[in-house]
Design a protein around this nucleic acid. Structure first.
Length: 966
RNA sequence: GGGUGAUUAGCUCAGUUGGUAGAGCGCUUCGUUUACACCGAAGAUGUCGGCGGUUCGAGCCCGUCAUCACCCACCA
């Protein structure tokens, strides 16, 4: 059977993948021959997502590490799985519902909606997994995990409850980042601050009761620059609509301009309210007017000021960012603004202020505006009840683990970023007003009125405390919460029966009404207590933060957990260092008191060829599946690998992928050549060789193995790819195959057999070493070129090294290759017809050079197209001279060469050489250099000068001969 | 405002303890030498952003400036 002319990636990839899967080649522990484990957790992609180039890159790197370790006999697990991705998935399903004319989420209700999400997940959830398989990702697919299935929800619930019981999770009413589109709170990290063109409006707030004061402005030297009587205080704002919720105007305590009116009241325009002028450290006297309106419920800074000074908070908007129109807001939002979108309200407020003559002036200004990272709408600070994690406490161990070196972060510089974030961490808001996710395991029950407790006797009625509405029960399951609540109430002397009544309601203003927690009066000796569950779900990152232990079966102490935890390395993009990496560190360290992994390798983000982030809206997305269809998975993988330098960004282009597709073809054809020349693979062990070329290529192979291993060890994937490329194409294909041809096709059976064996071995080594990067084509060739005891995916990674290097062979091949290149170069430059065979004259060769020539004259003759060899002591007329180590060669080209052309060539060569030599000689003449530079360096330079001088002398001699010819 | 990184051949980028620069693509010339035209051979191209400094020696270390990118941040 002869190999086809090209590798048919589309056909072979599907077949090979099926064979791997069928053989269970990727299962945990497959091919393990030692006790050491190697485990990687896949960064779980969104369950309903599809593969983009970033995934392809990320998973290629992981697959390389995994395949490499598996071939080296490590007990290897690559744990796959997907993330439920709360907001993203809920959004996708809502869109789908709208598109297909279904009821909306709210119309169908929570239970029904969640059914739809699960349907959607079943339907589209397998896509990305199949795509990862096409990439060649060798995950243990039998262990595929999902953050909403199996033990995972239990793990999440248990962690929530444990943290709650330790006081590390708590509920708080405070300002959060509110997304008016999704109508949920989001964390700081999900907010993107973007600079936009905005305005700053300067308003005049009149003093109450028509009071006036003398306003005096001074320059830095204390000279008065302005003095006038004012009946107002000027404030500036970028968000005029929030003025309706102002609770005060603040000035800096040192600001003399306003000292006369501190403590007085101003009349808030448009609202029938008086608010005080207070002092606080927050206002900057040098910025704007120096006076700041304080809207505690709609601005984070103002909130802090309001808290410090006991200023009232007025919440102006509902969950959609619409000015409140509910009854409670009757006295707050003036009628004309109610029900208006916040941006509409802004226009109206500005117009109304202007109409009142209170508009001081307006300026254009670039402002930083917060946007939701998924919704892309302007985020509104909102006062709501949310669940928080005490991140500061959890951050301590996460910081220590990296500082101590227990966990390494690569590239090193990202450590600083990690430190900075953890050292300044804020409480983590983990509750989301969504439906798709892990529902908070908290139930609310009625708070019993203490007055009654004393008289409860089992038949007496009990009432609720209407002023303090609920008791909180946090437990991992309904059964547990029943037990907990029953005990709680019975401890108060009440016999109860606990029932559930669904979730507490979320009203449109975002306040959870827990008053529905209820109780019925005594029946048959007990009281019925109704519990309502907190409707919120947890931030997706709360659950994915438990990915390492959760996928291994925690909270059960499974064999996998014992064996593979802590995992080895986390491979991910630096964009989720905070979102995910830091959270995993914090949570794993808190929950199991052990780091989740020992190394974090942060790779670049993939951009398009112009360096722009790929996005659907820009239309610059390269679809990895299309690239795989066109070029094959291996070409894509090799390309990504070759560009995986530590840090930075990765710009992907189709041309480059095509180039590496060609590399695969090159390898394929080298194998094809070997096959056509009777090189049968499959022999075990490093072959013994006598021929110089064979000894040389064996050494080269050992060298590249060392380079590749070192590069993988240091996560320098691009260096491994580069070394393999240079070896396979530059050494094996360009030289070894060519040099081997005379031996393979010659008469000496001994050399022929030896070379067949060596070539088969060399190509096998190429396949093995390339396999982690290019698994498909190498597996295919492995199968087609010999009888194998096992698939290449379980091939034995070699351990040979320097002991296979043969200095003598290296030197000789270097000499031969140099000569051949020299001859080719001269021929090309002299425009000697490529087909023309010329004689080569050896000139004054020493014994070593002579022996080298004799051993390799067939090779040289063939590769340099030399017809015959002659020996002379004097260079023939009209010859071109090639200096070599131990002598020189001449090409007599008198009738073909252009003498002045050759002279020009020599002049150029000599000039270059002399430039180099002069530099080096300058150094040796420098006393400082000679006395301070290391001996090795000096010796090297001296040697190079000697060589160079010799070479220059030969060139000069050749020039003299040519001169004589003219 | 703080921080980080980048600036090297026409393009995209490597360059790991400082020893006078590399790859891929592109470009030029030549080539049906039966593995491969997704190929082969030969070739051209860089004051390594500017300016200073340390050093025998700097793309690499230090300072500074310029331009760009990204991250973080509450200036109304």
């Amino acid at each position: 059977m002869t190999l086809d002319k090209n590798f048919d990636a589309a056909r072979a990839e599907a077949e090979i993948l099926a064979r791997w899967l069928e053989a269970g080649a990727f299962r945990a522990g497959a091919n393990a021959s030692r006790d050491e484990t190697f485990c990687i957790m896949i960064p779980p992609p969104n369950v309903t997502g599809s593969l983009h180039v970033g995934h392809a890159f990320n998973n290629t790197l992981q697959d390389i590490l995994v395949r490499w370790h598996r071939m080296r006999g490590f007990d290897t697990l690559w744990q796959p799985g997907t993330d439920h991705a709360g907001i993203a998935t809920q959004l996708a399903v809502e869109k789908e519902l709208a598109r297909t004319g279904n009821l909306s989420r709210r119309e169908m209700g929570r239970e029904k909606f969640l059914e739809k999400v699960w349907e959607w997940k079943e339907q589209s959830g397998g896509t990305i997994v199949e795509q990862l398989k096409r990439l060649g990702a060798s995950c243990d697919w039998d262990r595929e995990a999902f953050t909403m299935s199996g033990n995972f929800p239990d793990a999440v619930m248990k962690v929530f409850v444990d943290l709650y019981n330790k006081g590390l999770i708590y509920r708080g009413k405070r300002l959060v980042n509110w997304d008016p589109h999704f109508e949920t709170a989001i964390s700081d990290l999900e907010v993107e601050n973007v600079e936009v063109q905005g305005h700053m409006w300067h308003f005049k707030y009149p003093l109450a009761g028509g009071e006036t004061y003398e306003y005096v402005e001074k320059d830095l030297d204390g000279n008065v620059t302005l003095r006038e009587t004012r009946d107002y205080i000027a404030i500036a704002t970028t968000r005029p609509e929030t003025m309706l919720g102002d609770g005060a105007v603040a000035v800096h305590p040192s600001d003399e301009r306003y000292a006369p009116i501190v403590g007085k009241l101003v009349h808030l325009p448009l609202c029938d309210r008086l608010i005080p002028i207070i002092t606080d450290e927050y206002p900057d006297p040098l910025f704007g007017s120096g006076a700041v309106k304080i809207t505690g419920a709609h601005d984070f800074n103002d909130y802090a000021v309001a808290m410090r000074n006991g200023i009232e908070l007025y919440r102006l908007m509902d969950t959609r960012g619409v000015m409140r129109a509910d009854a409670a807001a009757d006295n707050l939002v003036p009628e004309q603004y109610r029900g208006l979108d916040r941006f509409e309200a802004r226009k109206l407020v500005v117009a109304d202020i202007d109409a009142l003559g209170l508009m001081d002036f307006v300026e254009d200004k670039k402002i930083m505006q917060p946007f939701g990272d998924r919704s892309k709408v302007v985020i509104e600070p909102m006062l709501t009840d949310q669940w928080y994690v005490d991140a500061k406490t959890l951050a301590g161990p996460a910081l220590a683990a990296v500082k101590s070196g227990e966990v390494a972060i690569l590239p090193e510089r990202d450590k600083k970023v990690y430190y900075h974030w953890l050292e300044n961490i804020e409480p983590w808001c983990i509750s989301r007003q969504l439906w798709w996710g892990h529902q908070v395991p908290v139930w609310y029950g009625p708070k019993l009125k203490r007055d009654f407790l004393g008289i409860i006797s089992g038949t007496t009625s009990v009432s609720m405390d209407e002023t303090n509405l609920h008791e909180v029960f946090c437990a991992p399951s309904e059964a547990d919460v029943i037990a907990q609540a029953t005990k709680f109430y019975e401890d108060q002397g009440v016999r109860v029966k606990v029932v559930f009544a669904g979730d507490a309601d979320v009203q449109r203003d975002g306040q959870i009404d827990r008053a529905k927690a209820a109780l019925n009066n005594a029946k048959e000796g007990f009281i019925e207590i109704t519990l309502f569950r907190d409707p919120d779900v947890l931030d997706t990152w709360f659950s994915s933060g438990l990915w390492p232990i959760g996928t291994l079966g925690w909270p059960d102490n499974t064999p996998e957990l014992q064996k593979y935890y802590p995992t080895s390395v986390l491979v991910t993009g630096f964009d989720i260092l905070f979102f995910w990496v830091a959270r995993m560190m914090m949570m794993q360290l808190e929950v199991v008191k052990q780091v989740p992994f020992h190394t974090v390798y942060l790779h670049a983000l993939v951009r398009d060829e112009k360096g722009v982030k790929m996005s659907k809206s820009l239309g610059n997305v390269l679809d990895p599946l299309e690239l795989i269809d066109e070029f094959g998975a291996d070409a894509l993988r090799f390309t990504l690998t070759s560009m995986a330098a530590l840090g930075g960004t990765l710009k992907l282009s189709r041309e480059r992928i095509a180039g590496y597709r060609n590399f695969g073809t090159k390898l394929w054809n080298a194998a094809r050549f070997a096959e056509m020349n009777g090189c049968v693979a499959g022999a075990v062990g490093v072959p013994k060789a006598e021929a110089t070329v064979n000894r040389w290529i064996i050494g080269e192979t050992a060298r590249v193995r060392e380079v590749v291993d070192k590069a993988f060890t240091e996560y320098r994937f691009n260096e491994a790819a580069l070394a393999l490329y240079a070896h396979v194409w530059g050494k094996v294909c360009d030289w070894y195959v060519e040099l081997a041809k005379p031996l393979l096709q010659g008469e000496d059976e001994r050399y022929k057999t030896e070379t067949q064996g060596v070539m088969a071995w060399v190509l096998d080594q190429c396949l093995i070493l390339l396999h982690p990067v290019m698994p498909f084509i190498t597996e295919e060739l492995w199968g087609q070129t010999g009888a194998r005891s096992k698939m290449l995916v379980h091939g034995d990674w070699p351990t040979y090294g320097a002991e296979l290097a043969d200095g003598e062979a290296d030197a000789e091949m270097g000499w031969v290759i140099g000569l051949i290149e020299g001859i080719r170069s001269v021929r090309a430059e002299m425009h000697v017809n490529a087909g023309a065979k010329v004689p080569l004259v050896a000139l004054g060769l020493d014994a070593v050079a002579l022996a080298r020539l004799e051993r390799n004259r067939v090779l040289i003759g063939r590769l340099a197209r030399v017809e015959r060899f002659e020996f002379a002591s004097v260079a023939p007329k009209g010859a071109v001279t090639l200096p070599v180590e131990g002598g020189a060669f001449c090409l007599p080209l008198a009738d073909v060469i252009d003498v002045s052309g050759e002279l020009a060539r020599l002049v150029k060569t000599l000039a270059k050489l002399e430039g180099e030599l002069n530099g080096l000689k300058g150094k040796t003449a420098n006393v400082n250099f000679m006395s301070r530079a290391p001996e090795e360096v000096v010796a090297q330079i001296v040697e190079r000068i000697a060589e160079g001088d010799e070479e220059a002398a030969k060139i000069r001699a050749a020039m003299a001969r040519l001169q004589a010819l003219r």
